[in-house]
């Protein structure tokens, strides 16, 4: 099976603009929102959402970065440790609405780790989840509040999200699974 492109640059831009509006609509006030990008590709996505919101609302929403590697459930089963980086959230999460941003929602295990990581930083008012792609196959009772695109997929396939900031191109594609899954 060859690579199949699902979203191109224009699709991604339109989708993020829609999610940005949904975030504002649902939360009424944007005053206490923090957008938190989940490393790696959630980080540029959260920056783009903040820019979208700024473009129509005129307010700059704070953006943070979350590295949830230390909360993963598969640390000791890996032969090679994952590179971890700093978490950098601009203010305390207490009484804030945290919108976690990630590229793909799959098993839900990353989201679970991210939830635990946020809760260890304090007690937010609420936590919401925004993803560019939901590909199904959940292994935990987790759902996203904002979904860019639902892409029903087989476990034998991989959803590859590439972004200009990290990969030099904006594109979402389905590819056959490589030998080792990351």
């Amino acid at each position: 099976m060859a690579k199949k492109v699902i979203m191109n640059e224009a699709d991604i831009k339109r989708t993020l603009a829609r999610i940005a509006h949904e975030i504002v609509e649902r939360n009424k006030s944007t005053d206490n929102i923090i957008l938190v990008g989940m490393r790696t590709r959630g980080v540029p996505l959260s920056n783009r959402l903040a820019a979208e919101i700024a473009s129509f609302k005129g307010t700059k929403i704070p953006v943070g970065i979350l590295d949830f590697s230390l909360y993963r459930d598969d640390i000791s089963s890996r032969d090679i440790p994952l590179v971890i980086k700093s978490t950098d959230i601009p203010s305390s999460v207490e009484e804030k609405v945290i919108v976690l941003v990630d590229d793909v929602l799959y098993t839900g295990r990353s989201a679970r780790a991210a939830l635990d990581a946020i809760i260890d930083l304090g007690r937010p008012l609420s936590i919401q989840l925004a993803v560019l792609v939901d590909r199904g196959h959940r292994e935990l009772p987790i759902r996203a509040d904002y979904v860019g695109k639902n892409i029903p997929s087989s476990r034998a396939e991989e959803i590859q999200v590439r972004l200009v900031e990290t990969d030099g191109i904006d594109e979402v594609a389905i590819i056959p699974k490589p030998e080792r899954e990351g």
Partner: peptide
């Protein structure tokens, strides 16, 4: 690099 991530944890409440 890993130490830097750990250092951030030390600054948390």
């Amino acid at each position: 690099q890993t130490t830097d991530a750990m250092h951030e944890i030390l600054s948390r409440p």
